[in-house]
Design a protein around this nucleic acid. Structure first.
Lengths: 350, 350
DNA sequence: ATTTGGCACTGTTAGTAATTGAGTGCTAAA
DNA sequence: TTTAGCACTCAATTACTAACAGTGCCAAAT
């Protein structure tokens, strides 16, 4: 990235930058000096605006597609623009009400809550919405069930405090009484720990425990593996929305999104880092991943009232209404937080 | 569809039809009389071929995009072509070997077997591959687990003979001893029945049973609902492949496929009927669903050695190498059959 | 020192016209 | 019944033009 000559953008220059970006987002066409003069009330002539825009281009915030075209923002331009949107625009009240209404159906289980959320994000943004399920390994274990299926097959069912249920079949021969004993033991020792911790502890605990059978130790190892293999769930909706966006007339961007949709692990990789940041985060163009160079990603994390457990957001074109979309993501995350908090409270009632 | 005047296509005419379609599939361009004469050894002049093609057009098997263009097949043309591919071309041996190799990893659980299969179908066809999981309601129950999570929450875990695991949380207050008793009872009465039957029986059985608690009856009702709510699993891969196909330069087809990918229930609706047919089935254009008018679907069912339990196949452009693709789908289904048979046998060893 | 009007220059876009070429249908002869 | 020949059609390509939107820069104005 080019170095910015004047560290601080002069007030007026920055107003011009904003105007250009705002106009470009609205119209999708490169904006020229006269369009600026007409649409925004700078008391400046087109000529002056031209020279200011030329400066902004030198600074790296604008470009033009060709000599006789207007200016469009560079990634750095968008960046500066977004960074200056300090105050989140509130969604209209009726909009918020509408969102809440959408949630009214089945939100008892966390899966449907999140899948619903992803749909809502996509539907309201008209872009692609996604929700990364509670960062699996941070979840607290509530219950471990070991179900004997046959003499050599055990079904492990893990249930977390947030309502996540995971199961996995493992092959092992073990006596049914021992199994039961192990189950009791594991539950007493691991309940309340996060999956991550549990995976480590399980080995240690079983070692301490006077196991009658060598097999039990082996089984514990398997279970530990099962926990480690758990993949974060991720929901994604509205991938096809990008096909309607006029900015993309090549298939490249669409293909890339469809690929992400199929290789969720890659998506997890990309947005997984956003878990750490509690605020709204906007990544423009290739900032988060090179394959997303023509897209922007708005994310935020959500929590169960205690700690951050997942990430949600939208993926859309670089030319999007950042203010509105940031507000949307923000509102939705608030609502999800609310639901999760209530779910947690229900748990404690037992 | 237009009525066919001569019931039986004269031998030569049908050879011409095949040649046209074959050439069109290869090149993607409308084929003209001279191209036909050069590429295939009819001992006929372009003029004769022209008149034959004109006849075929009158019969409804061919069209022109415009006056001075060559011929392309209509859906009916493809249909006739496909119908005449009686003998399935065998896949090359090395190809089959390659497929089997792909399967080598984790195929213990039915989920991964099927998900793997879908990927393989997509990868080898370069189109979209899909696998509909064992028609859920036909599955035989192997085990029902009722796990008490809290005083008011029960986790129902259903396990079928094919290795499918489904779970669902339900809210109800019930005594833990009663729960255990009910579990034993349900297992003894329902094991071996299909989910479909079980959902009906469960009510009847609990009615007969002298339930100590009214609650148990209610719970049984819930469980019955859970079973009925089970959705068929479906795996789909390679949606983005259609973007690479030159035939589609509008986004419409791509969008339609992406929508199918998100609304799996619609896909289930479309291909669900193919369960009945044991052979390879090819549906061209809108034959199966109007939204797929520019695509063809090749499906076949697969079984666990006993009865048909699912459908797999590919979705691609109408202009595809039907012989090869039919052979592919056929081979893959054979292999899946093999795996499922082996899984079933393992089960019986217990 | 900044702002501004004027002006030459540049590249896109749209429209028109001319040309080419592949492929057809039809007819009349083989 | 087949074939050669011919007139015809329409899509695709190319070339050219005119209009246009915008820029950069300079010299005058503030």
């Amino acid at each position: 990235m080019r170095q910015v000559s004047e560290n601080i953008l002069k007030e007026r220059k920055s107003r011009v930058l904003h105007a250009v970006i705002h106009e470009y987002i609205k119209t999708g066409k490169p904006v020229g000096s006269s369009a600026l003069e007409k649409g925004y009330k700078f008391n400046l002539s087109p000529a002056t605006l031209r020279s200011l825009m030329a400066e902004l281009e030198r600074d790296g915030y604008l470009t033009h597609p060709h000599t006789s075209a207007g200016r469009i923002p560079t990634d750095a331009g968008y960046r500066a623009y977004v960074d200056s949107l300090i105050e989140l625009q509130r969604l209209a009240v009726e909009e918020e009400e509408r969102i809440k209404k959408e949630y009214e159906k089945k939100t008892k289980e966390i899966d449907s809550l999140l899948s619903q959320t992803s749909k809502i994000l996509s539907g309201l943004s008209n872009y692609t919405g996604f929700v990364m399920a509670p960062k699996a390994k941070h979840n607290e274990i509530r219950n471990i069930e070991l179900i004997q299926i046959s003499s050599e097959q055990i079904l492990v069912v893990l249930l977390t405090k947030t309502g996540l249920v995971k199961h996995k079949m493992i092959n092992i021969c073990i006596d049914s009484e021992d199994l039961n004993e192990l189950k009791q033991f594991l539950n007493s020792k691991l309940r309340g720990f996060s999956l991550e911790e549990a995976a480590k502890r399980i080995i240690v605990e079983v070692q301490k425990y006077q196991s009658k059978q060598q097999e039990m130790f082996k089984l514990a190892g398997y279970i530990s593996n099962v926990i480690e293999d758990i993949q974060d769930d991720i929901y994604m909706n509205g991938t096809s929305n990008v096909l309607g966006i006029p900015d993309f007339n090549d298939f490249e961007t669409a293909r890339c999104l469809m690929n992400l949709n199929e290789h969720k692990d890659r998506l997890i990789e990309i947005i997984g880092k956003d878990l750490e940041v509690p605020k709204i985060k906007v990544q423009i163009g290739g900032e988060c991943a090179s394959e997303l160079k023509d897209l922007s990603v708005i994310t935020t994390s959500y929590s169960d009232g205690n700690k951050t457990i997942g990430v949600l957001g939208i993926i859309g074109p670089k030319r999007m209404e950042y203010e509105k979309m940031m507000a949307l993501v923000n509102s939705v995350s608030k609502i999800v937080n609310g639901f999760l908090l209530r779910m947690g409270e229900d748990d404690d009632e037992r």
